[in-house]
């Protein structure tokens, strides 16, 4: 060790590495236990909140449902009752039954990019009329007063029921659900956008369209099984 390196040696008050590691380990332990405690402590409340929020949304779009059962549509095409976290590739939907156990509608989630961020909606599909009866917004960061008109504007809500017939070969919707400029709606599968909130209207239409195109063709073979509560 020559003069030069001694010069660059840490000064006397520098922390020895062993102590540094010890302190960092202590800090990590404190922080780790805090995070784990918070995670465990709030887990049940958070899950309960999520369940209540979802249930409230499903009840809103299927008001006459007395019982709601969540199902998975597996990638293989098979149907299964939801139980825990959905397997990868599975589509989740909720079947609502009235007091006599008759299927009143299917509720499923869709999402599309809106004005500020992703708009997540829950739409209700009426299998008897082959139509989307209505929707509820689950999460959006759209501008209050503009974007949230989609849930309040009477003209916009008058778009529903929205035709969602399957095409003849049953692989897609016969007509794509899409938003059109305010006042130009001519078909039952078009969504008359709100003037001044076009982007959010379009997001709602696209969210419903994409989700329905993915779910409904694969769901149709199971509708007979689902028609009565099991």
């Amino acid at each position: 060790m020559n003069e030069q390196t001694v010069h660059f040696m840490p000064r006397m008050d520098a922390t020895p590495p062993a102590r540094m590691v010890r302190v960092l380990a202590l800090v990590a332990a404190i922080c780790g236990s805090l995070v784990v405690a918070a995670h465990q402590g709030t887990l049940s409340a958070v899950q309960e909140n999520k369940r209540i929020a979802l249930e409230r949304a499903v009840r809103k779009v299927l008001p006459e449902a007395r019982e709601i059962i969540a199902y998975w549509l597996l990638p293989s095409g098979a149907l299964a009752k939801a139980n825990g976290a959905p397997p990868p590739g599975a589509l989740v939907f909720h079947a609502g039954y009235d007091a006599s156990g008759r299927l009143v509608g299917i509720a499923a989630e869709g999402a599309a990019k809106g004005y500020a961020d992703t708009v997540r909606v829950l739409y209700a599909y009426d299998p008897h009329a082959q139509a989307v009866r209505g929707f509820a917004v689950i999460a959006s960061r759209e501008t209050p007063g503009i974007g949230d008109k989609v849930t309040k504007d009477k003209d916009f809500l008058a778009n529903f029921p929205l035709s969602a017939q399957l095409s003849d070969d049953g692989t897609a919707l016969a007509h794509e659900i899409r938003a059109v400029k305010h006042g130009t709606k001519t078909h039952p599968w078009e969504v008359d956008a709100i003037a001044g909130a076009t982007i959010t209207s379009r997001a709602v239409a696209r969210a419903i369209n994409e989700a329905a195109q993915a779910l409904l063709p694969r769901l149709s073979p199971h509708l007979a099984t689902l028609a009565q509560k099991t």
């Binding site: 102590r19 540094m20 404190i30 922080c31 805090l34 918070a38 402590g41 709030t42």
Partner: peptide, 30 residues
């Protein structure tokens, strides 16, 4: 806290409490 790694330590501590508050808010109101 050794002064050489103080900023990193502070950031980890702050991030911990932010994670805690994140879960608390989720539990209070979604």
């Amino acid at each position: 806290i050794p002064k050489e790694v103080r900023i990193a330590t502070y950031i980890v501590i702050i991030a911990t409490f932010v994670t805690v508050v994140d879960y608390l808010i989720q539990a209070i109101s979604l």
